[in-house]
Simulated scan of single mutants.
Amino acid sequence: MPQLVTVRVARPHGRPIRVWVPVLLVALLLSPVLILAVPAGIVACLVYRVSVTRAFAAAWRLLCALRGTRFDIEQGRTAVLVSIR
């Protein structure tokens, strides 16, 4: 599971902004939302006749596979780099 997300925004004038976001802390803060999202996901799986265990296993595998991913976005002279470690 990823441990840290680094966001770097390069602005046209001035120093770049860097933000480090610990994934575990964000997960703990959003756990009340997760408690509501899990039953909604189960209901959606039942409505669309998808195996609940396979759907949650696939979501977990996707989350674990995010480690090492980088997103580079450029718009004009502003650039955003998101790195997942």
Rank of each mutant, 00 (worst) to 15 (best):
A55Q: 11
G14K: 12
A59Y: 14
L30K: 05
A27T: 03
G41C: 01
Q3A: 05
V26H: 09
L24I: 04
R11C: 03
R49I: 02
G76L: 04
S31E: 02
F56C: 03
R49Q: 13
R70P: 00
I42C: 01
G76H: 02
V7A: 12
A57I: 03
V38F: 01
P39W: 11
V80N: 10
T53R: 14
L4F: 04
V7W: 09
I42H: 00
T6L: 10
I35F: 15
R8T: 13
L36N: 07
R18I: 11
S31V: 08
P32Q: 00
H13Q: 11
L30Y: 05
L4S: 03
G14I: 00
C64M: 07
V38L: 00
M1F: 01
V26Q: 07
G76N: 04
W20T: 08
V19T: 06
V23A: 09
T69Y: 14
L4V: 06
Q3N: 08
A40I: 08
T6S: 04
V7S: 11
P12L: 11
V82G: 06
W60R: 15
V7C: 05
E74A: 15
P12W: 14
W60L: 14
V5M: 15
V19K: 15
W20G: 06
G14Q: 08
L28C: 10
A10F: 11
V7Q: 12
P39C: 06
V21G: 07
L25F: 08
P16H: 09
R18Q: 14
L24P: 00
G41W: 00
I73D: 13
Q3V: 06
V7H: 07
A55C: 03
